[in-house]
Simulated assay, not measured.
Amino acid sequence: MKKVVQCLAAILIVVVVFLAGAFIRLGIRTNNILEDYSSIYVNTKYNRPVYIEGIDVITQKISCGYACIEMFSKWDGGDITEETLFNEYGKVVTSNGPKFAEEMNKRFPGYTTTIHRYLTNTELIEAAYETLSEGIPVPFEWAAKYGDDWTLHYSLLIGMDIQNDNITVANPYGYIEEISVEEFLERTSFEAYDNMPFYFKMAFAIDLFDKNTIFTVRKNN
């Protein structure tokens, strides 16, 4: 019995040390992405507003990941729906960023979707702006409110007007959001998520979820 207790204690110590290290690493990564981004307002590359037309905003019925794929499909002239995806798998397979990117690449072979995680604020703005400039909407992860509750959520970035401090998002909760750059970055970094439950914090710490994460989509040659 003593050996069992000692073994369990050792396992507990290893788990505690691992989690402590994971949270320290998360803090460092978070601090790194939250750099000053004021230079974007004087950078002439952002003088031209970019906006994607033809986005049919839907209200998700199954999952935000599937809903974003449906919106992207409709924009691209396809007929993929949340229902067809769920019926094929019998479950939701886009619960984290790599799986979402994998599904985008499977559903849209004419494009290559690449996940970018823990971008700095300026890197995120630049990558998103360049993709929008090519006429393609940008899927991304952020904190969003469903009623009074914060959630981890996928949406489509469809417009950026940096000079007028305006970001336009097609939110599959069923509406278009127009917000400031500051609010956009507070939510992509999840700094806006008040009172985040511990299990979500732990999920970020062990890399199940990521901050400042977008998906660039490029047409294949």
Results as ranks from 00 to 15, higher is better:
residue 115 I to Q: 13
residue 117 R to Y: 10
residue 116 H to W: 05
residue 114 T to F: 03
residue 127 A to M: 14
residue 121 N to A: 11
residue 108 F to A: 01
residue 134 E to C: 13
residue 115 I to S: 13
residue 118 Y to P: 14
residue 135 G to V: 04
residue 132 L to S: 07
residue 134 E to L: 13
residue 124 L to E: 09
residue 132 L to C: 07
residue 123 E to P: 03
residue 132 L to Y: 02
residue 118 Y to K: 13
residue 121 N to Q: 11
residue 122 T to P: 08
residue 123 E to V: 01
residue 118 Y to W: 15
residue 110 G to Y: 00
residue 131 T to F: 02
residue 123 E to R: 01
residue 107 R to A: 03
residue 130 E to Y: 11
residue 111 Y to D: 05
residue 120 T to W: 00
residue 107 R to P: 00
residue 118 Y to N: 15
residue 125 I to W: 00
residue 114 T to Y: 04
residue 120 T to L: 02
residue 121 N to P: 06
residue 114 T to H: 08
residue 116 H to V: 01
residue 108 F to H: 02
residue 136 I to D: 03
residue 120 T to N: 02
residue 126 E to L: 13
residue 112 T to Y: 12
residue 117 R to C: 11
residue 107 R to K: 10
residue 135 G to R: 06
residue 139 P to Y: 03
residue 135 G to C: 07
residue 117 R to I: 12
residue 108 F to Y: 04
residue 110 G to V: 00
residue 112 T to P: 01
residue 130 E to W: 10
residue 120 T to S: 09
residue 128 A to S: 15
residue 138 V to P: 06
residue 121 N to I: 03
residue 119 L to M: 14
residue 138 V to K: 10
residue 119 L to Y: 04
residue 132 L to Q: 06
residue 126 E to V: 09
residue 111 Y to I: 06
residue 111 Y to Q: 07
residue 120 T to F: 00
residue 121 N to K: 13
residue 121 N to M: 09
residue 116 H to I: 01
residue 113 T to G: 13
residue 137 P to W: 01
residue 114 T to M: 06
residue 126 E to W: 06
residue 135 G to N: 04
residue 135 G to M: 04
residue 130 E to F: 11
residue 117 R to N: 12
